[in-house]
Design a protein around this nucleic acid. Sequence first.
RNA 1: GGAACCGUGGUGUAGUUGGUUAACACGCCGGCCUGUCAAGCCGGAGAUCGCGGGUUCGAGUCCCGUCGGUUCCGCCA
Length: 588
Amino acid sequence: MSWKRTHPCGVLNGDLVGHKVTLNGWVNRRRDHGGVVFIDLRDRSGLVQIVFSPEVLTAEQYTIAEGLRGEYVVAVTGKVQRRPEGQNNPGLATGEIEVYIESISVLAEAKTPPFPIDKQVDVDESVRLKYRYLDLRRKELQQALIIRHKVVHQVRNFLETKGFLDIETPILTKSTPEGARDYIVPSRIHSEQFYALPQSPQIYKQLLMLAGFERYYQIARCFRDEDLRADRQPEFTQIDLEMSFVEPDDVMELMEEMVLAVFKEHSNKTVTEPILRMTYQEAMSRYGSDRPDMRFGLELVDLSDILKACTFKVFASVLADGGVIRGINVKGCGTSFSRREIDQLVEKVTEYGAKGLVWFNIGETIKSPVAKFLSEEELQSIVQTLEGEVGDLLVVVADKQDVVCDALGRLRLFLGEKLGLMDERALKFLWVTDWPLLLYDEDEGRYVAAHHPFTAPNDQDLGLLETNPAQVRAKAYDLVLNGVELGGGSIRIFERSVQESMFKALGFTMEQAYEKFGFFLEAFDYGAPPHGGIAFGLDRIIMMLTGVKSIRDVIAFPKTASAIDLMVNAPSEVSAKQLRELHIQVKG
RNA sequence: GGAACCGUGGUGUAGUUGGUUAACACGCCGGCCUGUCAAGCCGGAGAUCGCGGGUUCGAGUCCCGUCGGUUCCGCCA
């Protein structure tokens, strides 16, 4: 007889009562009553209860049923029946029916799995990763990967209707300076030479625009050899796209349509639209972050102006050195915070790189460790500027501008979390626009690209590239969701001279620029269209949609924090022969 | 590169100021059981407490080192 499946388990319902069905799946759970055996049969679609009764089965078949164990793979044939009165299981999609089995075949027996498949238990992650194929049987991971598939499918459909072409770009490519550390692949044919895995398909997609494809996209695997985090893996996936003849608004508007459609389709949280926009400048000064979490207030307020004439040494010296003073009104926490909690804020801010935190506790009088150094007018204007009322706690940091922004920005997040101000049901999107083109890197002693070296400067700022690089704004935009960077993009440089200036600003000599990017610069000479694009972190989007805390929970076969695949045991040594062919000698 | 936390039967945990035989639940194995759905009842097996060293009469417990996992800082155009 045929064991070919006629229905998935999870779709069976009252409409099929009386039908004969063949099911294939795993034994999820077994309940043996001696005279009757119940099995929850599982396949990708869900669970259904199947019933083995000696009244229906031959003795031989019933013995097989009694021998079933967890994770056995079986094929069964039987009749769908309504459950007896009062025996429905409302917790199960198929809970109003059950299948009376008439014949069974065990397709595969199974050892007892090293951890429970059918229950949600926090199993040590190294065990889960070693037996990833078992972990992937669990509902949470199945659902994450199903959502992931659906999102990719939806994105492909969307981009298809907008005229985008899916074009693959090389995985074996060239190591380039700037950016993250490359994964390197040795060449067998060319001794002492190496390919690099792409950090992103950036240059290739721009060349596709030069080639005239006008609209490109790719669900692109990217590789970065940097240390991992809860939301970072060495290989991850970008929704990568590029368009010709566009301005920032064209890209942002199209992507807004796509992203909102995805989140409305797959999230039950509240999506706020349209997506707000804010310049980088404003984000930094109001929220102390280039990716502000818009779900709560606690905004940063500047106090530099009102304290211009202040004689308190800490403030005065910071202002004299060109620094700033900013504060946050922690509403109502003057009353509710203990001294210990306030001390913790001071500690946090020091951790975040500031020298200290000045606080003002507004009660009947203003309590503050620095009150005696400030005049009554100064105290009052601080309170007024921060709109302080009785019961509030004002926290103030004075330092160089980026230190103040960073410290208060992180303190704001810490407070938002501590005070439970983030609405867990809200999805607050934000475009952060007008990024600086360049940021000064103290360690390198030079400017580095805020996004990447191919980002176009704002037309008005072009002249500043050589005179005042820090002031040059870029045609760049990041999409932020609840304080998480979902993606970023820009309009690209499409003129050779501008690209050369950019490399110069980054400290390249022309020789270096041509050695590394000569092919690219040359390409601009053959009729380059204005173009721009964006890339989204697919893994992070799925994290936001599923609400999981770890990127490993949205990737089928992820690596540990030390970049190891515990299942296949990679990386691993290779044979002496392989090394010889690659002209590689290994130390020790 | 740095820091913190965790590591005890298959899984999740308990284990007091160092003290006899390492406890509990789930799972597993066997028996009973015809309406369960976290089935129930009875019985059983299963752990050199991640590994190495040290302190001590005595270490799961204290100390040092190491390995593994996780999180954070640095890093991530």
